[in-house]
Amino acid sequence: MQSIPEIIRTIPLTNYIMLSSALFCIGILGVLTRRNAIIVFMAIELMLNAVNLLLAAFSSYYSDPSGQIFVFFIMAVAAAEVAVGLAIIVMIYRNIQSIDIGVLNKLKN
């Protein structure tokens, strides 16, 4: 009966990092390419999840629970962020009937 860390260690650490990094970069690309506020926000969530995945991987790899605890914190905070973020988006939608971030460029120079 292998313990979970041992199973996890069968795959080199680099692969976890690569995967998470790839996810993270996809998130970044999403942020860069999308103009819809909600989708941009989802891309950011994707970045956070990449982080979560990596944290969990490290945590398991080193048999150190603190990483996973951190994941919970991130989830909680992300939830708070979602609440605020969506509220902001709704507020904007009410005002301009659009959530296209490209439209919001009155503040500049």
Partner: peptide, 15 residues
């Protein structure tokens, strides 16, 4: 609207 715009900018970039 300015406040809205500021909020969304801050929020997106901050997160």
């Amino acid at each position: 609207l300015r406040s809205n715009e500021a909020a969304i900018k801050y929020f997106l970039m901050g997160s």
